[in-house]
Design a protein around this nucleic acid. Sequence first.
DNA 1: GCCATGCGCTTAATCGTTTAACCTGGCAGA
DNA 2: TCTGCCAGGTTAAACGATTAAGCGCATGGC
Lengths: 338, 338
Amino acid sequence: MATIKDVARRAQVSTATVSYVLNGTGAVTEATRQRVLAAVKALNYHPHHAARSLRTRARTLGLVLPAGSPGLADPALAELVAGLADGAAALDYCLLLASAGLETLEAELALELVATNRVDGLVLLDPRVDDARVARLAAAGAPCVCAGPPVAPECPALGYDFEGGALEATRHLLALGHRRIALIALPSDLAASEPFTEGYLQALNCAGLAPDPALVVEAGTTEDDGITAMQELLALPEPPTAVLAAGDALAFGAMHAMRDAGLAAGRDLSLIGMGDLPLAAHTDPPLTTLRAPRRTLGRALARLLALLVERRDGAAPDALLRLPLIIRHTTAPHPRQG
Amino acid sequence: MATIKDVARRAQVSTATVSYVLNGTGAVTEATRQRVLAAVKALNYHPHHAARSLRTRARTLGLVLPAGSPGLADPALAELVAGLADGAAALDYCLLLASAGLETLEAELALELVATNRVDGLVLLDPRVDDARVARLAAAGAPCVCAGPPVAPECPALGYDFEGGALEATRHLLALGHRRIALIALPSDLAASEPFTEGYLQALNCAGLAPDPALVVEAGTTEDDGITAMQELLALPEPPTAVLAAGDALAFGAMHAMRDAGLAAGRDLSLIGMGDLPLAAHTDPPLTTLRAPRRTLGRALARLLALLVERRDGAAPDALLRLPLIIRHTTAPHPRQG
DNA sequence: GCCATGCGCTTAATCGTTTAACCTGGCAGA
DNA sequence: TCTGCCAGGTTAAACGATTAAGCGCATGGC
């Protein structure tokens, strides 16, 4: 492979000049510039990345994939990653994926990535409240951004407008005439949990309804968790007529539980999910849900992080991303009304 | 950040010794070793990756994501990537994702990644017959592996056993009593197309059936392509009683077209897909399909590529990966029989 | 008693860039 | 004519690792 020296020799200049030309820094005559460029082309020269990042940053953003679990197989995550790669590419960064083995802790690996200078910054997924990872990263001075609600001042965050989404979804159910509206919430240690619940409560409040604690059940995140939660709701003395689930997977589980109880979503009960997974459009009946613009989020996060590592303090986290309500067929007017 | 010099100073040795200790090369007394290790720990030292890869390889595998299109949002690709990241991690490599912008050609970007030494090798997706990309990479001497059937000698390939899979699937249909079995094939420029068709033909052949050219239709890869193809088949004077689709998306389209024609898969016609996308288990009725072990493939590919770049010539491509037939509800005995 | 050997370490060259500091003409202004 | 300055270069010192070569010293074979 040709090095900068080869280029310099061929263009009859010093390596510094070549560097100046290539980086657009320094003052160089047009004639010289052309000679250098010609040499670059002739030798098919590409600057050695490692050598370069010995002096500059690595121009690489890092993402560590959670250990086991679906990981990237989760379509939600996959699309986010696609957005990250996109956004990174747009600013001439690359995206480095590291798999946390079962033994390696996620934060450990992340720290190593920045300590070894493989990446300039990290994006963190699924922040928890008081997330230990961001604490560690922040302590180590590693630039990072969070996908989700803000959890620490050192770590700019960007996520969906869960509160607004839940508000809109709940209002939609209210508009359909429902009064007993249940919430299947995310685990409360997930930072996304609170604002979503907040939006739900606010909608009830606006409608002059007193929230019934029995109607909000904290679940996990999986389909199975949704089943359990729904069963719990159905077993209530006065079960809900509509359900808002804080995740599509939970909603799928809820549909499942309904079916097992001889009930149909969109007929006997209304159901709204969150996320708009690919599957959501294909359930029977298709799920009404809040669409999470994952790709957009990924792009924005990459951009935010890139700006952050470059200290161009345009790194003000953008506005939260709206979660538009996609109305399909699991929502219907309240029976007593329709 | 602490450098190797700091460690050396603290441990009262030269930097070379530190390096030897850390890399396990060279001869060092146990006592010295311990001193060095202690210093490393005390200073929380992590070797600078760029500096290191100035002399060694980057220990990074590259993947360039196709420009537009679903990209990573395609669950099939996502899981493959997850496998790659996994496999890479297992051998202490990382995975670098690069998004080809619309302007940048995929091969161009790939070449640049290895020319700049950002990655040691590349994995190529969806190889076409006589793929221009592998030709370019091979010409440039860039180590690479293909996910799919072999397309060039320089580029070890590893993929699914399409032939065996198609054979098994077709045999299953034959065993159910079907005789007019159609094939919705992939575009013939996709390298995966031929072996799949081959397996299909071979099964017919073994059963003593003459293949009817009208029954094999070359489609694209999308659901829409599947619709078109199925409509074509249904319009035949003597339509098939069973259909083998070379991709789940095609199969979804075929189901769609069937439904539009008032037909139901699993009742009026049998249908088998390929891939076992997450959706496949959730269609109505659930799709019988060949399961592609994508994560496994990803892991194996990463391993293959890592060995290749390390010239440990254990880099013999493994055996093709079996495509087990997952029997769900779109396949049923031939009506006249059952 | 002498030389070859091997151990455990250090010295210094090297990898391919970037960039601060310096140099050199030429030209404007006094 | 002299001074000062600027544009357009060059030189050389980093950056932080790896690694070949060398060095001093004990040991063992002859």
